[in-house]
Every structure is written in structure tokens, then in C-alpha cells.
Amino acid sequence: MVNTEIDELVHRIKKLRTEMIEAAAETGLNSYRTISYSQKLDKLIMIYQKQKDIKEIVFNQNEMI
């Protein structure tokens, strides 16, 4: 289950990153649209990192058993 969630996050991060780059090319780096995408991307990356940490903890606990 965790792998599916992580895969979905990776997909969403890649899509949002592409949208942010397109927005920056169209409206500039300091536009509201680009900054909004950047902030959303930051949040998704933080969620991704937390999910990876959880997966690592669970994996390590299972190895101990």
C-alpha cells in the first residue's frame, strides 16, 4: 500500500513540476502562478519524504523480527 502511495506522489510531483516550469516560461519566475505551483510542489515533496521515512522505518522493523 505504501508503494502505491509513493508512486502516486512521484507522478503528481513530476506533473506539477512540469506545470511549474511551463508557468515560469509563460509568466516569469516571480509570477503568482509560478510561485503557487512551487509552493504546492514543496508540500508534495515534504509528504513524499515523510512517506519514504515511514516506509524505511517499517522495513527496518520488519528486518528485526
Rank of each mutant, 00 (worst) to 15 (best):
S31E: 04
E56W: 02
Q51S: 13
I54M: 09
M20C: 07
G28Y: 01
K40G: 05
Y32H: 11
Y37S: 00
L9F: 11
L29S: 05
E5I: 11
M46Y: 01
V2E: 12
K14H: 03
R12K: 14
I45D: 07
Y32A: 10
E22I: 00
F59I: 07
M64W: 00
T27R: 11
K50P: 01
N60Q: 04
I45N: 09
D53C: 08
T34W: 13
S31N: 04
Q51W: 09
T4G: 08
K55R: 15
Q61N: 13
V58C: 02
I45T: 09
N60Y: 01
T18H: 07
L9P: 03
E56L: 12
E56Y: 03
I21H: 10
T4I: 07
T34M: 08
I13P: 05
A23H: 04
Y48T: 05
N30V: 01
K50L: 15
R33Y: 11
N60S: 07
K14L: 06
V58P: 00
H11Q: 06
A23C: 04
E26R: 14
I35L: 01
L44T: 01
S38Q: 11
I45K: 10
K14D: 05
A23M: 04
K40H: 11
I6V: 12
M20D: 02
S31T: 04
V2N: 12
E26I: 09
T18A: 06
M1C: 08
N3T: 04
